[in-house]
Design a protein around this nucleic acid. Sequence first.
DNA 1: AAGTGGTCTAGACCACGGT
DNA 2: CCGTGGTCTAGACCACTTT
Lengths: 238, 238
Amino acid sequence: MDDRIPRYHRLRDQLAARIAALEWQPHDPLPTEQELALAYDLAVGTVRKAVDLLEREGLVERFQGRGTFVRRATFDRSLFRFFRFHAPNGERRVPESRILERVVTKAPKAVVARFSLKSGAKAIRLARLRLIDDTPIVAEQIWLPYEPFAALADCPVEEFGPLLYPFYEKRCARVVARADERLTVETANATDVAALGVPEHSPIVVIERVAFGYDGAPLEWRLSRGAAQHFAYEIEIR
Amino acid sequence: MDDRIPRYHRLRDQLAARIAALEWQPHDPLPTEQELALAYDLAVGTVRKAVDLLEREGLVERFQGRGTFVRRATFDRSLFRFFRFHAPNGERRVPESRILERVVTKAPKAVVARFSLKSGAKAIRLARLRLIDDTPIVAEQIWLPYEPFAALADCPVEEFGPLLYPFYEKRCARVVARADERLTVETANATDVAALGVPEHSPIVVIERVAFGYDGAPLEWRLSRGAAQHFAYEIEIR
DNA sequence: AAGTGGTCTAGACCACGGT
DNA sequence: CCGTGGTCTAGACCACTTT
């Protein structure tokens, strides 16, 4: 037993592993802090510190009086973090999602590298347009390894729905736990002009996202392009 | 006494107020957790929770065996968070800072509004260029209310140095505790072309920053413009 | 060796949500 | 009303830093 790392840290790891194994669904609670203390032979205060960590990492949410629940991040808010829409009433809607293309193909080199595939392995490529009030906001290109997402290659594209990550979970038992994003700025190419209806050479914000599962393995690679005109990102620094 | 809010929260507020009053300098430690517990008639565990909050907010840093110290945020890293430089050796240097202009003037409307000044009040405007290897990276326009920054209007600009916030603290006893930043993208205007040496209409990243003191009052308003070509911002989302 | 923050325990009571 | 997480206490021991 590793005595050097604190117990609440070890408990965190064990609980994180059980969450990764999808032992609990987002709607039913984890065991009580009392129960965990009993099961792992720890004081409640120590259990609380472990759950504090999980909460700070965004793996669980706590509700006084109700319990502690695993959390599914809603990464689609990232669109809203970056792009501000002057919606008439000011409320946020999930943008409409239009799958333009879905192809299964031999993975190009960049994709092989991202997902550590064997060369020659297959991959799924989606081209998607996201619109609000029929106005295109962001054009996305999404790459997935064929394994374990084969189910997405077969089912009708109409079933995809506006959010992909819940779909991945339902159809392929793959949960996105976190993601890395990288923002850069380019100028509009011919494809942008056609897809987004922006002037040629106008600034385009490019968001590259790699989404990871609980095990840290990359699940999805996504390249989004949107008119910089709508872009605004706000942060607080300390 | 407000019994509704927890004691560790109240202690946090009291300590935050003492930090705001500059009662401790960054290099000498706060009282021991033991001493605080004694002074405020609390258990050590409760004191620890209060200090946990301060630490999470970035107001203090803890070092095992040494003590707890007030922290001064180094916001100039934000330049590095946004703009990547292919420095030959890869190391980060503080960019050179060149004050191009310093004027005391009647505050324009936007500045009056930001700082809640009386109309007709004076303000200080700085124009600054930041360079690495003599290459201009970012052009900044900085607005400060004349009070309490009058000292900056008189001293020679050579004394300003590469970082402004420590200078504010030394000369004007004003400490920046946090800041809000807003990123947008525009296209290069004639000023950008001249200052940054970029092509006309090329994309420009605009960073607007409002820096606040411990009391939450705005201290500085800063508009930075840099070539989008060098821009890249990376975040992790959960 | 003395003093600091970090870990861990055991137990009491409080505030909130659902029954 | 009961069960949940949240607050608070008091004290023991550990790990690290400085003297």
